[in-house]
Amino acid sequence: MSTPLRIPICDRCALALWPPRTLCPRCGGGAWREGDGSRGRAEQTTDLTGDGAPRLATVRLDAGPVVIARAPGVAAGDRVTLSLDAGALQADPDPGSHDRG
């Protein structure tokens, strides 16, 4: 089952982070609320070799954090939607965003 990515946001200074940390690197706060982390843009991709090897992408979330995600069919520059699928962060290209290969 896949769910849109929710990310921790520092309760005190509103810094958004992914992956989660223990203390906020900006203000030292340790209390978190959840925010939307499901929208972003793929910056680079890499194709791994071997049977069933995935394409991975570096994705800059609209919320700020830069994350690593599995990215089938994603090209650098694509707008993507991020979801957690059985613990794996997945980026899927938004319809119409895919302008290359």
Binding site: Q44, T46, G50, A53
Partner: peptide
């Protein structure tokens, strides 16, 4: 273990590949 391995991460080659492109 928690964030990269579930992606099918084979090791740091993937990360440095994207840094190389950048």
């Amino acid at each position: 273990a928690e964030q990269l391995v579930p992606l099918g991460y084979p090791g740091p080659n993937a990360l440095f590949a994207m840094l190389t492109t950048r």
